[in-house]
């Protein structure tokens, strides 16, 4: 069973623990500049939104890659960049409609969220539950449950 990163911006405080955790997991350095998840602060609306790859099924990046350096990890569903194969041409960064695959000057390759092999560091580090890792078929579960709770059903009198 695959899982998905599920993001609830209403719970995000903008603390960047996710960016630190992501960069540390992937580089061994606490360095938000190298994070694969970014938190955006819409200052004048008072909104903070963490954003990263949604792991598209028909992934633009994967289809655009001329050397087949982006492949699916069948265990997690993550679209993985294989650095040995990637030539750093950046075509995938143009193809991705969401901007979630980017070039890394240090490696000369592209990088994107790989779901940390099925145990995403960002979700573990989030102190408010704004980022969770849930059943890929049930990212709507929480919202359904919230609406279900409002259903106007009769309650038996005690």
């Amino acid at each position: 069973m695959w899982k998905s990163l599920h993001i609830d911006p209403a719970k995000c405080t903008g603390c960047l623990q996710c960016e630190m955790a992501c960069s540390f997991e992937h580089t061994g350095v606490i360095n938000p500049a190298k994070s694969l998840i970014k938190v955006f602060n819409f200052e004048h609306e008072g909104r903070k939104v963490p954003y990263t790859c949604t792991q598209c099924t028909e992934a633009w990046c994967l289809n655009a890659c001329p050397v087949d350096a982006i492949r699916i990890d069948l265990a997690t569903g993550a679209k993985m960049v294989f650095e040995d194969t990637c030539v750093g041409c950046k075509v995938c960064t143009i193809a991705c409609p969401f901007g979630t695959i980017n070039y890394n000057q240090d490696s000369g390759k592209v990088q994107k969220c790989d779901l940390c092999g099925g145990d995403p560091a960002c979700a573990k580090a989030c102190p408010t539950g704004a980022i969770t890792y849930v059943d890929a078929d049930w990212t709507g579960y929480g919202r359904m449950q919230a609406w279900a709770a409002k259903a106007n059903t009769a309650v038996a009198a005690g």
């Binding site: 405080t13 903008g14 603390c15 960047l16 623990q17 630190m20 609306e45 008072g46 909104r47 903070k48 102190p127 408010t128």
Partner: peptide, 15 residues
């Protein structure tokens, strides 16, 4: 009040 906000790395978020 619109929302609370955190400074860098803060898990309290009193802002």
């Amino acid at each position: 009040l619109v929302t609370n906000a955190a400074c860098f790395g803060c898990t309290i978020a009193c802002g």
